[in-house]
């Protein structure tokens, strides 16, 4: 029977960690772009667009991420399309991330005083121009800390992709446990790696939050 040393376990976990990082980055990047588009729709004062984003956000915030992964993985297959675990995980995490980021960013946009909107309106700027040149440059400063803080949730969220067969850190841990029967060691290492990914981010988020408070 094949023997696994401690280093074998660790190196296999670290290889799988790469996929956790890649999936997190893609989800965060794509979710950020979709979230930005939704943010423009959500604050546009156009009723139909606002309603659409409200329903979208309620759906993705109000249902478990696991159900969303199942819907993308099994649901789309029902229509005759072959969906890889990769594609399903990317799509579900992107939509899920975008819903949360839109709400975080909307709060930051609403924190900008009404006078900024009125002054820029009076200067004949259009809504998009107001957002681009006046509101977002100010809102993004407030948004950095909660956005970085939320990225921790995205990293941990990728663990659920293991259930539809995507081999990332958690899935690799499960497979290694099945092969070695050393659950305590394997899952301790898995947890430790997640912690090493997440802790610097939450520490950084705290730090920028503190710095912004001093600046005010």
């Amino acid at each position: 029977m094949l023997q696994f040393s401690f280093w074998d376990i660790l190196s296999n976990l670290l290889i799988a960690t790469q996929w956790t990082i890649v999936l997190s980055l893609i989800a965060f990047f794509c979710g950020g772009i979709v979230g930005l588009i939704l943010l423009f729709m959500r604050t546009s004062k156009i009723a139909a667009l606002e309603w659409f984003t409200k329903i979208y956000i309620e759906f993705f915030q109000g249902t478990p991420l696991l159900m969303q992964l199942f819907l993308f993985f099994f649901g789309i297959a029902l229509f005759g399309f072959e969906v890889s675990p990769w594609a399903a995980a990317t799509l579900a995490l992107t939509f899920w991330t975008s819903a949360f980021l839109t709400e975080i960013w909307r709060g930051c946009v609403e924190a900008i005083p009404k006078g900024q909107w009125e002054a820029s309106s009076s200067l004949a700027l259009s809504y998009i121009e107001q957002m681009r040149y006046v509101i977002l440059p100010q809102a993004s400063r407030i948004a950095v800390a909660p956005t970085v803080g939320f990225s921790v949730q995205v990293i941990k969220g990728t663990a659920l992709a293991s259930i539809i067969g995507f081999v990332e850190l958690t899935k690799a841990g499960t497979m290694l446990n099945n092969a070695t029967f050393r659950p305590f060691l394997v899952y301790s290492l898995v947890a430790l790696i997640y912690f090493c990914l997440c802790f610097p981010l939450s520490w950084w988020a705290k730090k920028i939050e503190g710095r912004l408070n001093v600046a005010r």
Binding site: P113, G115, Q116, A119, P137, Q138, R141
Partner: peptide, 9 residues
């Protein structure tokens, strides 16, 4: 405006 409303950035 009364409150100036300059763009602070």
């Amino acid at each position: 405006f009364q409150q100036f409303n300059l763009f602070p950035h």
